[in-house]
Amino acid sequence: MSAVSETHDNHHHDHAGHGYGDNSKLYIHIFRDDLGSKVGMWLFLFTEVLLFGGLFFLYFGYRVADPQAFHDAALNLDVMLGAVNTIVLLTSSLTMVLAIVAIQRDSVKLSLFYLAVTIACALTFLVNKYFEWSAKIHHGIYPGSDHVAEMPQGEISFFGLYYLMTGLHTFHVIVGAIIIAVCMVFIVKKHINKDKYIILENSGLYWHLVDLIWIFLFPLFYLLH
């Protein structure tokens, strides 16, 4: 939170900027509440955590029911690919936070550079995932395939969860990359600047959450040997 952030204060009305969407000309009604936006973002992140939480609950249930099947099925996953993706995501988290530091210090170009690196990391992650999944699908391991249907039931659950959890996570990576790209546009257009960077901070929170979930997915799926 910077020095310009506003605490809640009903008296304060800026006569510039956007206000009520439906009457922006007539009724200018704006006050900034950066802490409020941030708390809102955190609440949204909790809903995301609980969305994944449902899948983690299922993982917990099925793994306790048949640990051996999970162990056997996990042998099909490539630890190296998983580890590389972990490092890629951790690095992207670092560059994300550095981009915020840069914008706080008014280094616009440096900030843009760090965000570009973050997106590059996201793309690397996706390419990596593409190779990982296409290898699996090539071996006939995908939901509903005949090969999977012949497996022991615990392993079917494992691969079901594997595709669902990493799939949902990958979806979040794609969304996060798009959000970061939008942030870059905002920085170029000076909507995000030294005094007003709550959008970048909130996008950063989202991106770190994507990282956070992967930190748990990695040992739960790849490190069962």
Binding site: L35, K38, V39, M96, D211, L212, I215, F216, F218, P219
Partner: peptide, 24 residues
Amino acid sequence: LIACIKSMLVLNYFMHVKFDNILV
């Protein structure tokens, strides 16, 4: 346990919780 330590690092520093308002 290691995953939890890692996530605490990300939460506290990258996500800034350690420096944030008590509400967060």
